[in-house]
Write a protein that binds this DNA or RNA. Structure first.
Lengths: 198, 198
DNA sequence: CTGTCAATACCGACCGGTTGGTATGTTGTC
DNA sequence: GACAACATACCAACCGGTCGGTATTGACAG
């Protein structure tokens, strides 16, 4: 008889584990979630989890990669087009807001635990994130020096007013809410770019 | 012999415990910090901690109150003056940025753990925070309807671009850094209010 | 088409260590 | 000698992680 689950299961076991971990980390935080809770929600056992993942931390790292990997690739595509600062900044805001909203649970889990993760495994990922921010700040700085953007606020403040929204997006954005992510992105871009109008 | 610490200690034991907990929670997060770590850093034992606090959670609640209590009182004072929206919003931004910066460690601990705390003890505090946000949004909405502020972005987005900065302030603000909190507040207010200029 | 065999997928009992919390001192002060 | 202010010793529960085992699968041989 047996079970032949590999074919019959609704989704791959690995994916179920990751999905369960994502929900729980987003709800309770990483440290407050036990491996037992994860496997219970995923419908597997600890043996199964440790068959696919080397450690509990690997689950977080995987989410981290999912969130930042796509965003970083999109950033390079947008900047690579070489268009004017206003278009570029608007495209970046749109991508990060819509992209974050599309992975809102992963973002919630990651953004909360980001500061606490300070071992060598995550330094590469944090360096990626820093590069993202530096790119945006550099873009704003260059445009301000060229007189395209007004120097009403420093590049640091402008970039943080953007990232601050995406970092806290999970506390108020609802996928089934009245305002779609694209609308949020547009309003934020309008607000920031009006403020920066030379 | 004995120790007669009550008088000789550099600071009250209760304050030392709270300060140690604040630092550790800000660095590692609440759940990842053990009571043993707190008492070690504070230079006391667990018996001492549980003499002053009923539970580990009480430490977080105390920080929560310290952060939001002052802010909420200041909000009422500012709004109570009945001045024009531009002055009022600028005063609010200045107070929340400078106030958050002044308690940056407490803010880091609280802002990270806020979403995960969902028991009945914290609902009152979360209600206070929601009232704060609602006040700011209402202020913006009224001013936009009166034509004083431009409707370039909805009150929700504007308020979140402000709170997003303060929520993530702990990730980049340094008390001994080159930019004082008051300057950050002014730039943020300039950016937002320029965007809202009718 | 069937038998063999190694690899993969997964289970569930178990491990040493740590957790938040407590019960019981001990000590100085009024 | 009552009481606040702590220290010390200790507990049951739970933690992340391991391990020996088993069911299932796929490749290959004949």
């Amino acid at each position: 008889m047996g079970r032949s689950r590999t074919v019959a299961g609704v989704a791959g076991v690995r994916e179920r584990i990751l999905a369960a971990a994502t929900e729980l980390f987003a709800e309770q935080g990483y440290a407050a979630t036990s491996v037992q809770q994860v496997v219970d929600r995923a419908g597997v056992t600890k043996g199964g989890l440790y068959h696919y993942f080397g450690a509990k931390e690997d689950l977080l790292i995987e989410m981290y990669r999912a969130v930042f990997g796509e965003r970083l690739a999109a950033l390079d595509r947008i900047v690579g087009q070489g268009r004017d600062p206003e278009w570029t900044l608007r495209a970046i805001i749109d991508d990060i807001v819509v992209g974050t909203a599309a992975m809102i649970k992963e973002s919630a889990a990651v953004s909360r635990e980001l500061a606490a993760m300070d071992n060598e495994r995550t330094q590469r990922l944090q360096a990626d994130w820093r590069r993202y921010q530096e790119t945006v700040r550099g873009l704003i700085r260059d445009a301000q020096e060229a007189g395209v953007f007004a120097a009403v606020a420093s590049p640091e403040i402008v970039s943080w007013s953007i990232f601050g929204v995406t970092n806290s997006l999970h506390t108020w954005y609802r996928p089934d809410g009245p305002k779609p992510a694209a609308a949020i992105a547009e309003e934020l871009a309008d607000l920031v770019l009006t403020g920066l109008r030379a």
